[in-house]
């Protein structure tokens, strides 16, 4: 059973940063994504959660092949994504895997009408005749809630609101019926009253079209609303992974705990405890081999200082944690 399944095995992405120390050029690397392994099942909504700079967007871009991993293997439907050749095989891959971007104001070409934007993937993939394309575009526009479609088809992005733009972007990703969609914070720039509608649309499309999602977000509440399972990333590493409710109710990793307790609650009668965490995030430039969270961890001990970054281990069925002190 590999159909529609996505797996990452030991995926690492390093970005070189050049520094000058006197006249000596030193090449350092930002470990944006570091030895990440995970799997998303067909039809699943998988959340990837973390703060800015934790590597969640980079992971998404690696999956859709906007970036190439430095090491590791990514498979979709059992096919190794990193070895797909240009031309036909790549185009076939693009049909299966699509992406929705964060900023609806920047992700649409300002000179394209809605029709041009949504029909572009059909054209690039050589799907449908020109005559059929219009009907297909109209159909997907109704499906994303831009009805009646003919009133939207020939508008330009600047004539649409943020929510409508994001729906156009969703239509563009869905028009070629992908199996897998990476959604990179698709609602974080939308207003509250619009946001719920777009989130529910993504859920509905998942049911209707049978797509699986990797849902990248910084917002735990959104992840809870949208996703079945989630992984929490910290400085390029997955530190905890499991069913959403399980992770939120019984967080094990100290970072996940801190993150959860820092989320403000829309209820004035609830009092939160301050998150138990020290210091600030540092950029992961050639980090030491120990646990990435070591310097900020309230629970760190000698075992953490003496060993390399811990592997993910199952604490409960389906609930994985990368921490030496998980069982304490």
């Amino acid at each position: 059973m590999t159909e529609g399944r996505l797996t990452l095995e030991g995926v690492t992405k390093l970005f070189p940063v050049r520094k000058r120390v006197f006249t000596l050029k030193v090449r350092n690397f930002v470990h944006a994504v570091d030895n990440v392994s995970m799997g998303v099942e067909r039809g699943e909504m998988f959340g990837l959660v973390g703060e800015s700079g934790c590597g969640k967007t980079t992971t998404g871009k690696l999956i859709v092949k906007l970036l190439e991993p430095t090491r590791g293997k990514i498979t979709v439907d059992g096919v190794d994504v990193t070895r797909i050749r240009r031309g036909k095989p790549l185009r076939a891959f693009r049909r299966k895997v699509q992406m929705i971007f964060q900023d609806p104001y920047e992700s649409l070409n300002p000179r394209f009408t809605v029709y041009d934007t949504v029909a572009e993937p059909l054209g690039l993939q050589g799907l449908r005749s020109l005559a059929e394309r219009e009907a297909t575009v109209a159909e997907i526009l109704s499906a994303v809630g831009l009805t009646p479609p003919e009133t939207f088809m020939f508008r330009f992005p600047h004539e649409l609101s943020g929510g409508q733009r994001q729906r156009v972007a969703i239509a563009r990703a869905m028009v070629i019926r992908p199996q897998f969609v990476v959604a990179d914070e698709p609602t974080s720039m939308l207003d509250v009253s619009i946001r719920a509608g777009v989130m529910d649309l993504l859920v509905a499309l998942r049911r209707e079209l049978g797509v699986s999602y990797l849902y990248v977000t910084h917002d735990l509440a959104v992840a809870r609303y949208m996703c079945d399972r989630m992984a929490v990333m910290y400085l390029g590493k997955i530190v905890e992974q499991g069913p959403v409710e399980e992770v939120l109710r019984n967080p094990v990793h100290p970072y996940t705990r801190a993150l959860i307790s820092a989320v403000p609650v829309p209820d004035p009668t609830v009092r939160r405890d301050p998150p138990d965490i020290r210091g600030d995030v540092a950029a992961p430039i050639d980090p030491p081999p120990q646990c990435r969270f070591l310097s900020r961890c309230p629970k760190s001990g000698t075992v953490c200082e003496r060993n390399n970054h811990p592997d993910l281990e199952e604490v409960l069925p389906g609930h994985l944690v990368a921490c030496y002190r998980a069982r304490d």
Binding site: G163, V192, S193, G197, R224, Y225, V263, V265, P266, D267
Partner: peptide, 24 residues
Amino acid sequence: IALMSAFPSIQGEKRPLAQLPGEP
């Protein structure tokens, strides 16, 4: 009322979010 129930939360019961028709 709509604004209050359009916000997901990580605490309490998971509930459907209110949707407002239209745009401001």
